[in-house]
Design a protein around this nucleic acid. Sequence first.
DNA 1: GTCTTCATGTAAACGGTTACATGATTTG
DNA 2: CAAATCATGTAACCGTTTACATGAAGAC
Lengths: 193, 193
Amino acid sequence: MSLRYALLAILRVGPLSGYDLQKQFHQSVGHVWHAPDSQIYPELRKMESDGLIEAEEQTRGVRGTRRLYHVTDAGEQAFLDWMAAPLDYQRVRDPAHLRAAYLEAATPDSARRFLEAHIVEWEGELAQWEGELAHIEALSNPMLTRRLSVTPEAERERTIAYKRFAYEGLVERARGEIEWARRGLSLVDRLYP
Amino acid sequence: MSLRYALLAILRVGPLSGYDLQKQFHQSVGHVWHAPDSQIYPELRKMESDGLIEAEEQTRGVRGTRRLYHVTDAGEQAFLDWMAAPLDYQRVRDPAHLRAAYLEAATPDSARRFLEAHIVEWEGELAQWEGELAHIEALSNPMLTRRLSVTPEAERERTIAYKRFAYEGLVERARGEIEWARRGLSLVDRLYP
DNA sequence: GTCTTCATGTAAACGGTTACATGATTTG
DNA sequence: CAAATCATGTAACCGTTTACATGAAGAC
C-alpha cells in the first residue's frame, strides 16, 4: 500500500490535477512504483475521503471540470509518518529465479529464449533508470527542478543525493540481472555441447 | 500465477500429501516463491479440478485421512508448456527504492533505521540462499537428492547446474542490496555532519 | 495426559490487473 | 473538421494476505 505515499511524494511539491499528477507519476516515481490510471484516480478519491488531500474543482471551458489536488496537513503528516515507520517487506516471489531453478525441464532453445527475454526486460529497465539518473545529474528532470525550487538551499544537496542514490541502486540491480542471465546463456552452451 | 508451477515442480519428483508438499515447499522452492498454507491447499484442489494432479485418499489411523497427490500427464505437459512460454514480468513496485528516493523527508535517524533494516532484511535472505547453495553443492538438499534419484545420469549435471545458477543469482542480488544500503548509510553520515 | 506433529482448510479484505467507457477541449 | 490531448473514471476478476478454525494421531 505504498501507492498513496508515491502519490503524496509528488503532490507535496505542489498542487496538481489527477491528470497532471498521473503524467508526472509515469515519468518519475512510476519507474519505481508502477500504477495504471485506473488505480490512480480512485486512490486519489480515497485519499481525499481520508483527509490526506483536498480538491479544488475548476471549470475548464464551458462544461469540463478538473480537480486540483493539494496535500493537507494530515497528508503531510501521514507522509512523514510513513517515512519514519519501518517498511514492510513482502515475501520473495520471483518467477525468473523460480524458472531458472528448474531449467533442466526446458529445451535448450526455451532456456535460451527465457534468458534472452530476461536480458531484454532488464535492459529496458536499465535504460529507463539510467535516463532518470542522467536527468538527475543534469538537473533536467522536471519534477526534480520543481521540487528544488520549493526546497531551501540546504536541503537541495540531500534531495539530489538521495535521488541519485535510489536510482543508482536500481541501475546496479538491472546490471546484475543482465550479467546473471548472460552467465546463464554461457551455461546453456556448456551444458548442451 | 506461478504458484501452481512451483507446486508442480515439487510434485513432479514424486507423490506427496498436501502436508508433506507444504513442508518441502517451505524448505526449497518457497525461498523463491513464498506462499502460505492457506494458499497451497486450495491451489492443490484447484489444480486437481483442472486435471493437473490427482489425489489418492488414504486413511490415517481410525478416522484421519490424507490426500496423496501425483502429477497427471496433463500436469506434466502444463509444466513443460510453462517452461517453454515467455515469462510475464510484473511492473516494478519497489517500496525500498521508493522511500530511498525521498529520504530527505526523513530525519537522519529514520533514514539510518530504514537502511539498517534493509540490511537486516537482505542478510536474512542471503543467509537462506547461501544455505541452500551450500546444500546444493554438498548434494545434501533432501528435495534435490530425491530429484536426482529419479533423474537419468545425463540430466543430473544440468539439474544441479541450474539450481546453482538460480541461487547464485539470488545471492548476488542480496549482496547488491546490502552493499547499496551500506553506501546509503555512509551517504547519511556525509549529508548530516 | 499433555505436547507436538500431522492434516486440512475457510472467510474476509485488500491491492493490483485488465478491459472498457465517455466526452470535452485544444491544436493543426 | 479531424486528431491529439485533457480529464476521469467503472467493473470484473484474480492472486495474496491475514486471521481464524478444527481435530486426529503419535511421542514422551
